[in-house]
Each structure stands twice: as C-alpha cells, then as structure tokens.
Design a protein around this nucleic acid. Structure first.
Lengths: 314, 314
DNA sequence: GCCCGGTCTGCTCATATGAGCAGCACTGCC
DNA sequence: GGCAGTGCTGCTCATATGAGCAGACCGGGC
C-alpha cells in the first residue's frame, strides 16, 4: 500500500466512522469507486488504523479470552476490559463483578461450591445478586478465622454467597496456618473439621483467588504470617499463595513445612477438581496468575486485560 | 433501557465488534431476534458505549471541524486527532503536516501567498512536498530578521515554501519590532520595504501562526522582547501575538505604542483578507487561538483536537 | 371490566456491504 | 517484441443491515 492509498484510507475511515457516510457517498467525495472505498476501509482495519473499544464496566475482551483458552489450555476464561478504568480498585471491582456474573450464568448450577476467602472473594460475594442460584451450599475450603483485623470477613463471604444463592454455608472452624504441626494434625482430626474438609472435597466446583507474595497479603494482615516470613518465602521463590499455600512460578509448594501446617484442601485436591474458578486481577498478581494457570490449579480464570496479556505475551 | 438490556447490548457489541459475528449469529447466541440485536447495537452506539478511533498521524476529527465551522463561523477548519499522540512535539508536527496538506489541496492555487514566520511556519515549510504548487510567489508579511539565535529561519521558511511550490520568495528586510517609532517609520518608507509590504497586501492568501504570550515566545528568543516586556504585556491582558502584534482575548492590540513600532501588515489588513489560514496548536496557545477566532483574524483554522474543543466548550 | 396511549416486537422491503471473479494493465524476463 | 505472472479494477450476485410499520402488550384511569 503506497502512501497515497494509506492517506485515502484514513480520509475514507473519517467519513465512514465519524460522518456515517456510505461507501458510495465516500466514493463520490474522494472520486473513487465504492469498491475501492470498501477495500481501503478493509485495509485501514487490517492495518490497525481503526480501534474500536467498548467503554463499559461490564465489557469483556473476547479475543483475549479465546487466546487464553487456546494457548493456555483453560476450559474458559473471562477477561474484563481496561477501557476507561481510572484506578486499580475499579479494575478489581470489575473483575469481581465478572466473576459474580460467571457464577450466576454457570450451568449446571453447582450444588456444593467450595470457596476460599480474602478481599477478592468478599467482593464477589457482594456483587452477587439475591437469587443468583437456588439452593447452593457453600463450604469453606481453607482455614480462615482471622486473628485480628476484619474479624468475620471469611465467614461473611461464605455466608453471603450461600444466602444469596438460597442455600447455607458450612464454615471451616480453623485458623489458616497453625504454629505447630501437631496442632494442625489435631485440628484436622477433629470430627467437625474433618467433616467439613470431607464435604469440601466433594464440591462440584471451587471458587478461589490467589494472593501475591508481598507485605499486603491477607495472611500478613490477618496475623498468620509476619512480613519477615513473607520475605523468606519470596527468597525461596514464592510468587503468591492459593488457599493459603505458597507456590513458586511453576506451582510447586515452596515451603513444605509451612504447607503442612496449613489447614484445608491441598493444591493437588484443587487441581483434581472438574471445575476450579480462579479470580485473579491486578498488576501485583501477574506472577501468581501465571503460576496458577501454568500448574493447572484452575480450569476457569477470571481476570483483567493486562494480566491476561501478561499470561499470553510476557 | 433497563440494566438487562444494557448488559445485553454490551454482550452484543463484543460479539459484533470484537468477534465479527453477524447480528443474526449474535441473535442465536443470545436468544434474541436479529432486530433486537440491531436495536441493542444502535443503543450501545447512541449511549456512547462504543468508541471508534482512527489511529493515524494524519487522522482528522471531522465532527469537530464541522462544529468549528458552524459555531465559530470559520470558512474551514482542520482538526488533527490526538489519538495515539505521545508528546506535544508530535502534536505540533501533526498540525504542521495538516497545514501542509491543506495548502497542497487548496484550490484555486494562490498566486501570491503571504506568510509569517516562527517555529510553526518553519515546520510547515519542511512538511511541504516539492511541487506542492506550481509558481507560488511567497511574500513575508511581517518583519523577521532574527537578532541572535537561529539566524535565517524566517528567510528559510519563506524561501522553502516558495521553492517547493515552484515560485520565488520576497523577503521583508526589516526587524520585527524596532526600538524607536521614528526608525520604524523610516524603514517602512524605504522604497524596497514599502514595495514588499505593498506586495504582501495584494496576496491572495495568508498563512500565519500565533504565539503564546510567554517567555518561550520567538520574540524573546529572537531578542525583540525581554521576558520583562512579555510580563508587562501579559499584565495588560495579552494572550499572544499574531504577526508580531500582541492581542488580548478579544483580539484588540494591547500596547498601541509597541504595535506602532512593529513592521508588517496590520491586524486589520489581515482581517480583510479573503483567505487567512491560521495554524495554532498546543495547550499553551488555547487562549490566543480563541482570540484569533473570536476576532476573525483568520477564515481558516488548522489546529489540534484539544485546542478545538477548548474553542467550542471551554 | 374496558378503553386508551405509549412502548416494544417482529415483520417487509429497500439499501449497503462483502465475496468472488473476469478482464486489464503493468512488470520482468527472454 | 512477445509473454507469463502479478496485482488491481470494476463488475455480479449473495448477504447483512437499517427504515418503517402493523400489531401485540402493558399499565393506568374511569
């Protein structure tokens, strides 16, 4: 395409997209046949001169979703658009909303849904609508009685999802991480706890997020880990955690001793699930999102455009 | 439009614009008739959910051009797009390119073109192509022998435009502003100078820019004014200059004594021209662009999107 | 219960667009 | 100069889309 045609294709695009003229009218204005105009427009599109964006908080990026399915082997992917996003919080919210939409549209409706907890899951629970499902029983899949701030958000998340879905919640009455292995083993052998974990294992689907391995982690905020603990984990290669278990970029447990003191489903149990929905968004979580997808911890990923592109290209 | 329809229109837009599905196919996917899909897409457009941008350095904004013509009474307006602009310099370049394009396409081809000088005009001269016209004589319309830095750019501008247009340039051999009124009068009565000004008055068209009233002005750079002089002018209400003459926001001369010492066409002579092309771009020039258009110093304006929107809404 | 105005739906028909193809001009090679 | 190969042009025809309209539907007033 020479320079003259390039310029003509721009003039044609202006008249077509900004002035809503027909290709025939454009042909008359630029002294071209309408077929030439059609070809110029096709070339302008093909060469990327035309950008079409959907500006809406609920907008998704279907081509990126397809690439994620095809290139990363996911069963499904939901990618929310960045168009018009003002702040990281807004992106987080859009992603939570998309996850809620996905759950609502999920067929068949899961009878038992295993959930983790954290900021993302809490936000999803808030975006779900009353009646999003009928009779969904929700079960916690990892320990989560917070030690200090925000008491009860873990419980509120599970209960909220269950109530709005017309079912009930089964909480896992245990800390996330225990200081002694013996205590952890004792708790897991408790009849109630063991029963909950057994129920969790039988879930039809899992919904969980992933945390970045940094000082803002909910485990630090909840008092299960110190910032120094996190630093050590990072040094061992940790990129983040899933259901409280810290993994490296290949999805391997970085600290087996710590992992043994962590209550809840194991990562291999999660991997074995027929439907595992991971919801991961934000720049800080690019590395852990990659680890989750790479090690097949989820079959469905709900994420944002930048994270998705990171998984695909870089 | 209720929330359900809004969401449907976004889903439809994704399938239509990102996946290139037909409205009929979308109808099948979303369990709607194709007419409903068409209406949802129309509503998405109308409500501004769909943004179409033309990403190209030569892209123009025709709807804004029309508004400028209609709402500000211009004979013509050229507005270059901001889409994809990285730096103010790039915008300046796009505008100069657009001005060069406009000149090249101008019919009838002017036989005599009066030009001012400055950074913008120099850039336009560089973007013109050899043979952009055949036999255009170029004449300087205001004094412009620079005192210090960049000697000869004023002359190079006029000569460049003329040569590429297959004609010759007539330079105005005089400083822009003189220190004494008597000297200015003496220079203007010089036979050569008077002849050039007479020729300038007879131009078929004028091409000029406008300067902001700030310390970066070419008049400061060229040594005709000190930064203190500019401060005083600003205090008197100056928003910028056209052909070396400082005006307020209504286009009135702010300092008649200074104006009397300025060599070249007067603003009223410029206003009387049948075709006056002003090329003004950049945030710093919003105020002076408004003054130029408001006081009808030009009949054609070449500018950038942000400046144009400032003229219309701001 | 019944009527009325407004809105929405799914149609017909006209128009705009894209796919595909035959002919033509141009280029490079002999 | 002749000729095959390549790419562009302007057509035909099929398809996609938009305008306009008759009837269905809904909510409110009597």
């Amino acid at each position: 395409m020479d320079e003259v045609d390039e310029l003509l294709s721009i003039r044609a695009a202006e008249l077509y997209y900004e002035e809503n003229k027909t290709q025939d009218e454009i042909g008359q204005a630029l002294r071209l046949t309408r077929w030439k105009v059609g070809r110029l427009l096709a070339q302008a599109k093909q060469r990327g001169f035309i950008r079409i964006e959907i500006l809406h908080p609920r907008a998704r990026r279907l081509p990126i979703e397809r690439r994620l399915r095809e290139e990363r082997g996911l069963d499904d992917a939901i990618v929310v658009s960045h168009a018009g996003v003002q702040s990281p919080e807004e992106l987080q919210e859009r992603t939570a909303q998309a996850a809620a939409d996905y759950l609502t549209a999920l067929r068949p409706v899961p009878r038992t849904l295993g959930v983790s907890w954290g900021r993302t899951l809490f936000e999803i629970s808030q975006h779900l609508r009353n009646g999003w499902a009928t009779g969904v029983n929700v079960v916690q899949i990892n320990g989560g009685v917070s030690l200090n701030r925000r008491p009860g958000t873990a419980a509120a998340t599970a209960v909220g999802i269950a109530q709005k879905g017309g079912g009930s919640a089964t909480l896992l009455p245990s800390p996330a991480i225990l200081e002694q292995l013996a205590t952890k083993e004792a708790i897991e052998s408790d009849r109630v706890v063991a029963g909950v974990i057994e129920l969790a294992r039988s879930s039809d689907a899992y919904l969980f997020s992933a945390g970045a391995a940094d000082h803002n982690s909910v485990h630090v905020e909840s008092g299960y880990l110190s910032t120094a603990d996190v630093d050590v984990l990072v040094q061992k290669g940790a990129v983040g955690d899933v259901v409280g278990r810290y993994i490296d970029s290949d999805g391997n447990i970085v600290d087996p001793a710590l992992d043994a003191r962590t209550v809840g489903l194991t990562l291999d149990e999660l991997r074995a699930a027929p439907l595992g929905i991971a919801v991961v968004a934000g720049t800080a979580k690019h590395a852990v999102a990659d680890a989750v997808v790479r090690s097949r911890l989820c079959s469905v990923l709900v994420t944002d455009e930048a994270t998705a592109l990171h998984l695909l290209d870089g």
